[in-house]
Simulated scan of single mutants.
Amino acid sequence: MLKNLMQQAAAKMLRNTLNQLAHHVEPSCFGDSLAERTRWNPLKSGGSNFRTHKLVSTQRDRMEFRITAGMLLFALAFFLVGVGAAAGTLLSADLYLPLGLFGLIFLAIGGGLLYFSAKPIVFDKRKGFFWKGWKSPDDVTDLHSIKCCARLGEIHALQLIAEQIKDDGSSYSSYELNLVLKDASRINVVDHGSKERIREDAAALAAFLGRPLWDAAELKMFDAAMLASKMEELRKIEAGNPELLDEKTRELLEKLALRLEKMA
């Protein structure tokens, strides 16, 4: 009796996994062969549940993502708490060490948030480059020393994907905008929680660059690598527990196998 119940539960979990995969969308929907070679998993882990950056046109041939007032206030809040704790050490000798450590931690967090969030994210047609960081291509002799940098001519498309983030029992969606280069590699641009705003900024940037936008903010996407990994797991279940696969489940599994074969 117990064995049958366990088998039924396992079969249900297997069917749910197969059904979820069956509703994923193939990258071929964008009508570009490079989209099928591109990864569709989040490039940058984590994110935020509010808008951290906005796209602005600083010159006719230059656009930048800049920190929003909300992100600035968020970072300053940590910084000010740290300043307050540090000031509190002057009021009590007994609390000097704990308040001092507390203050230093919050000062470091606030300072780090400001430093990394405010760093330039630039698309400059005159220079012919995209870069992300405090150093521009003009400041270095070796472009490889800039971690996030690419010639605008190397950009093939813009990719917008969603990621579900779980944090302390709650969950929210964060939206990631990436550049897809001609070799199918990707560079992250921004990642924040405002779907409407990041879509607007992505569309404006795509128009500025004259490149297509692959908008998958509301799509569940998979690529060949992810599907192959899932199929390997499912095939192991099939080999070890063939009794779990009824006719409907086998049919779903074979459909996914055909999709993988098509994408290979």
Rank of each mutant, 00 (worst) to 15 (best):
R15N: 07
L107S: 11
D191K: 15
R235P: 08
V189D: 02
G169V: 12
L143S: 10
G88N: 10
G46N: 05
S194V: 03
F74S: 02
L90R: 11
Q7E: 15
H156E: 09
G133M: 04
L219Q: 10
I146C: 06
F79W: 11
A9D: 13
H23L: 13
D124V: 10
V140Q: 09
A224S: 12
H53I: 00
P120I: 05
L179R: 04
C148P: 03
A87R: 09
L21F: 05
K220G: 15
D191M: 09
T58N: 08
M231E: 08
N41P: 01
L245A: 06
A204L: 10
W134C: 06
F129L: 01
F102H: 08
L18I: 03
Y175I: 03
V122H: 02
L177W: 00
R259V: 09
F116A: 07
E254N: 12
D246T: 06
A203T: 09
L234Y: 09
E176Y: 02
A77T: 12
L97K: 12
E261M: 07
T249H: 00
K125D: 10
L72M: 12
A35F: 04
L256R: 06
M263Y: 05
P212K: 08
P27K: 02
L143I: 14
E196A: 15
K236H: 15
Q20Y: 13
L107V: 09
R250M: 08
I198G: 00
G133D: 04
K3C: 06
S136W: 05
Y96H: 14
H24N: 07
G88Q: 03
H192I: 03
L244P: 05
E218M: 04
R199P: 01
S136T: 12
S45G: 12
P137M: 07
T68A: 03
G84F: 11
D201N: 01
K195G: 06
P98M: 03
T141E: 15
E176G: 05
L97S: 11
L14G: 03
